[in-house]
Design a protein around this nucleic acid. Structure first.
Lengths: 369, 369
DNA sequence: CAGCAGCAGCTAAACGTTTTGAAACACGCC
DNA sequence: GGCGTGTTTCAAAACGTTTAGCTGCTGCTG
């Protein structure tokens, strides 16, 4: 029953390995492996012996060794600017849910929107041989070396929430043009005519799109585009505060803010300046959160499907990992205007304006759910 | 210079391996390894040859193989109930920062406070041979099997934010007893005498501690403990809303809410019932967030050092991984009372009451920074 | 009874690293 | 010339899996 064949005993401090189980149950490694991955080719008696040994030794297959030979780690790398930015937890959660469903795990990195950190993170993930990478690109260009690496390396990338023109990869984003367009149309319909924008950094693709939507809606509504009513922030609270001061000094009667954190900053500026919303100006913010329920006035916002963003990106990535080599896909998720009080009380707003945005490169699909 | 020795050519679709580099530069694998990990023992000429080959082949060491042989993955598993709960992103960020500093990565899992998911996650992390696990325990008991596994397995665990009595492991938590105590004392000092509590699930260690702090502060201030003024929620918005309705119907003149999400729910109930804070009741909430700046009245809260919580936990874990086998440590971080408007305007509050909480088992250290 | 198919189980080679022991060589010292 | 002492390099054994290819065995077919 037991080992007379040349085989080392179990190392002391170490977890049981497959060969320990084999020795314990008097079968070959092959048989243990077959039992673990329950292949059919194992007789009932042996299978039982092996299972007992597994329980006895508390054996747990070493997925590192498995990864090495299978050339798959069942791990996805995910790089976000900052998990503390309330936008991202839900995206990460979406990705994790989808990943989990397919037996993958998430290796999480924060880039702080720094190119250097982004590069380090990508290099590390590649070295760790993740099966794919979900990337919310930091503002700015890849270094040429990294760009080359990414194009050549054999694992799929899916861009999340931000596109990156010179990279022909899949991307899952929200239809920011459309969201901004609707936001501004809503401001216009509620009677505002001098509408300002607090924008994100225009080097970031979605900030640019939101700006485009803003501009086009203005044009559509025959309203003037006044450059001094457009202030560029960096998506953070502090910049919303500063931008708010700058913008409000020109007394716009409507403001569209391109993200939630800057809205928080803006509202602080508003209070300092003793202004009232919606009396003095109408406000539409981007992105919805549970705690907005206690803001007064209740904010009208354009909600982005954050969870879906993450889950669709992960699903797509996993498809690619599975070997679906098709043309790069650009998937745009539809945002949803949620009308509350910050533009004055709910005008009757028809759904009429929900049309697809003039769309971009390659394969564009407009989907929700 | 080149290969006449038996050595396979580079596989087509695959990344270059160390032996490809060795072949390309006409040296042995050993030498390449030495160059990569820049050991000193390599001659200048050879080193250069090898470095060129590395660049040419775009070689990137395979950390999976390295992990297999070194029995270290440089990866930490982190299990939180839900990254979407705004408490956790900052904790995760703290952990990630510390991990990164020491060359570790974070594998993130959500347990949804479900024992089943927690167990699955732990099993998976163990199979993936993470070097250690950061765990915010789900409410409830480990299954006996899992409990045994955790005690026996050779990798360190650090509990984050929640302790678990039958497990002799390290833990990093906030001093919730002290935080609650201070919160209630502040309510008392601002003249409230019928103080209510919206508590977390009392099976969770920190909820219990907060309850104890609440009770003891009441006693200390010679105020009555009225059972109908204590309502147990589940740390989520909805439960705060329901608990708020239940609690407010008894007309307390002070409320301490044990976490942020339940505060959001409570405030919705408050508005529905047409009550005013701080006129009708004083409020102290737990945990501070940037967006609280726009809540009215400005909330007085007990801030928990979330980032530090994560980073200290990770630091401790990494120490353990590094071989520091000492007695289990319980590290308590001090919370900070931030007085704003929700108990009436800033009474003069002395720092006098900042004393250490009567402390618990084993090695307790009280630290901040 | 030869031949064959099918099954259960085995051996051994891979996966890409690190690391141990030893070889090859130069150098200086007696 | 013999011998220690380094230095540089190497070959080969590990790490814990999966899996291709093989070996017997059993029973069926002609």
């Amino acid at each position: 029953m037991s080992s007379s064949k040349r085989s080392k005993p179990q190392k002391p401090g170490r977890a049981a390995s497959i060969s320990d189980v084999a020795r314990e149950s008097g079968v070959s490694i092959f048989t243990v492996s077959a039992v673990v991955n329950n292949k059919s080719h194992v007789g009932k008696d042996l299978r039982e012996r092996v299972e007992n040994a597994i329980r006895k030794l508390n054996y747990r297959p070493n997925l590192i060794a498995r990864s090495l030979i299978k050339q798959k780690t069942q791990t996805i790398g995910m790089i976000v600017p900052d998990i503390v930015n309330p936008f991202f937890p839900m995206v990460v959660r979406g990705a994790e849910d989808a990943a989990q469903k397919h037996g993958y795990n998430l290796l999480l990195c924060n880039s702080d929107d720094s190119l250097a950190k982004e590069e380090t993170a990508i290099e590390l993930l590649l070295s760790k041989r993740v099966d794919g990478i979900l990337l919310t690109k930091a503002a700015g260009e890849f270094s040429p070396a990294l760009h080359k690496t990414i194009q050549e390396v054999n694992i799929p990338f899916v861009l999340v929430m931000r596109t990156y023109p010179t990279l022909t990869k899949d991307a899952v984003i929200t239809d920011d043009y459309q969201g901004a367009y609707e936001a501004v149309c809503h401001l216009a319909r509620s009677g505002r005519s001098r509408i300002g924008l607090i924008s994100g950094p225009l080097r970031i693709s979605n900030a640019k799109e939101r700006w485009r939507g803003f501009r086009d809606a203005l044009e559509e509504k025959k309203l003037p585009y006044e450059p001094e009513l457009v202030v560029e922030g960096d998506y953070r609270i502090e910049s919303g505060f500063r931008a708010g001061h700058a913008l409000l000094s020109h007394r716009p009667d409507g403001i569209y803010v391109a993200n939630h954190l800057m809205t928080i900053g803006l509202l602080q500026a508003v209070e300092e300046m003793g202004l009232k919303c919606p009396e003095d100006f109408g406000l539409v913010s981007f992105d919805d959160y549970p705690w907005l329920g206690v803001f007064r006035p209740r904010l009208t916002t354009v909600e982005l499907p954050k969870h879906q963003l993450g889950s669709e990106a992960a699903e797509l990535l996993i498809q690619r990992i599975g070997g679906n080599h098709g043309k790069p896909v650009l998937k745009k998720l539809l945002p949803e205007l949620r009308i509350r009080e910050s533009c004055g009380f709910a005008q009757f707003v028809s759904a009429e304006h929900r049309r697809a945005a003039p769309s971009e490169p390659s394969d564009v699909s407009l989907v929700n759910k």
